[in-house]
Simulated scan of single mutants.
Amino acid sequence: MIRFAVIGTNWITEKFIDAARQTGEIELAAVYSRTEEQAGQFAEKLGIPHRFTDLEAMAGSGAIDAVYIASPNSLHAQQAVLLMNHGKHVLCEKPIASNSAELKAMIEAAQQNGVLLMEAMKSTLMPNFEAVRDHLHKLGRIRRYVASFCQYSSRYDAYKQGAMPNAFNPAFSNGSLMDLGVYCIYPMVVLFGKPQRVKASAVLLGSGVDGEGSLIAEYGDMDAVIYHSKITHSALPSEIHGEDATMVIDKISAPGNVEIRFRDGSVETLTQPQVENTMYYEAKHFAELLKQGKRECATNSHANSLLAMEVMDEARRQAGPVFPADRK
């Protein structure tokens, strides 16, 4: 059993813990929170034996092998590097860092310490994404990738009333591109690699983060069009357009249904059975990599994470959002 610790006591951490336990290969050994009360309540609720309020102490603990980081985006790099310097393997929530400079430091720490570092981009490890990749050739020459993730944030109403929730605070390296756009960009670089050019625009909120935006990535003989938003909602699916057929993906952040619609009107369903808690696949994959002694994921690789981050860096440079982490 791999002894895991978690950083963060929010709903996403609870979901990961449920997924990790379903793998049968991960034992939840510790939780870190800034306060003793929060750490204690979370540990008691989920049956976690060790609790920490000092990250350095947890990093040096012999009770854990790996850590799942689900803290605010701006803390990912600092926490991951500390943990990896103590020999801990790291599964880090998306986006893995604030910018490519931070990510390069994380990759360097992983390589120097011989530990596994993987971005927790669940969608690219799911069976239905594997179906996308395996059947892409049936589309003929691909001309366009269209991805949309627009989801009205539950915290936007509070923001409009004058509050400053983390989701709209640039101090935490947040915003629509970072929180939702990454789900569109990561599959793009996994499937098609590095774009030649990126053109981006965004609607900036008063706090300085982007509420919504769009991006065009040029690949020479094809392009990619991406929509993301935390201040509007959309039911649009995502698509990959080929000269022979179009592939329709219901939800780019967690593909549940995938089909190919050919020009002659025929339809091929590619949908694969999946477990309900789709975080299972990232947890299972991470555990298998550790069992095999591997230090990098082939799909959620260091190179793909860096490519996605560089695209987001350029999009922010053009569209305007600047984080305190960019000035370090």
Rank of each mutant, 00 (worst) to 15 (best):
residue 19 A to N: 07
residue 77 A to L: 05
residue 34 R to Y: 08
residue 89 H to Q: 06
residue 70 A to C: 13
residue 108 E to H: 13
residue 102 E to N: 10
residue 19 A to H: 06
residue 20 A to T: 12
residue 45 K to Q: 12
residue 31 V to I: 15
residue 86 H to F: 04
residue 72 P to V: 09
residue 117 L to G: 00
residue 5 A to K: 02
residue 44 E to P: 02
residue 11 W to T: 11
residue 106 M to H: 01
residue 93 E to C: 14
residue 37 E to S: 12
residue 66 A to W: 03
residue 51 R to Q: 14
residue 85 N to K: 12
residue 79 Q to P: 01
residue 74 S to D: 04
residue 28 L to V: 14
residue 14 E to V: 13
residue 6 V to M: 10
residue 94 K to V: 09
residue 5 A to L: 06
residue 75 L to Q: 11
residue 24 G to W: 10
residue 109 A to G: 03
residue 37 E to D: 14
residue 58 M to N: 01
residue 61 S to G: 10
residue 5 A to I: 02
residue 81 V to N: 04
residue 77 A to T: 05
residue 85 N to A: 10
residue 71 S to K: 08
residue 118 M to I: 04
residue 97 A to I: 01
residue 119 E to G: 15
residue 52 F to P: 01
residue 76 H to I: 05
residue 78 Q to E: 15
residue 37 E to P: 01
residue 73 N to W: 08
residue 55 L to Q: 12
residue 76 H to P: 01
residue 55 L to A: 14
residue 9 T to P: 00
residue 94 K to A: 05
residue 49 P to W: 07
residue 61 S to L: 11
residue 29 A to L: 09
residue 20 A to M: 12
residue 79 Q to D: 06
residue 80 A to V: 04
residue 69 I to V: 14
residue 88 K to C: 04
residue 24 G to K: 10
residue 81 V to F: 07
residue 55 L to I: 15
residue 66 A to V: 04
residue 49 P to E: 05
residue 72 P to E: 07
residue 37 E to H: 11
residue 26 I to C: 10
residue 122 K to H: 14
residue 104 K to Q: 12
residue 58 M to S: 06
residue 42 F to N: 02
residue 44 E to S: 13
residue 31 V to F: 10
residue 42 F to C: 05
residue 46 L to V: 09
residue 114 G to S: 06
residue 35 T to D: 06
residue 11 W to E: 13
residue 110 A to Y: 00
residue 20 A to K: 10
residue 7 I to R: 08
residue 112 Q to R: 15
residue 90 V to T: 08
residue 12 I to W: 12
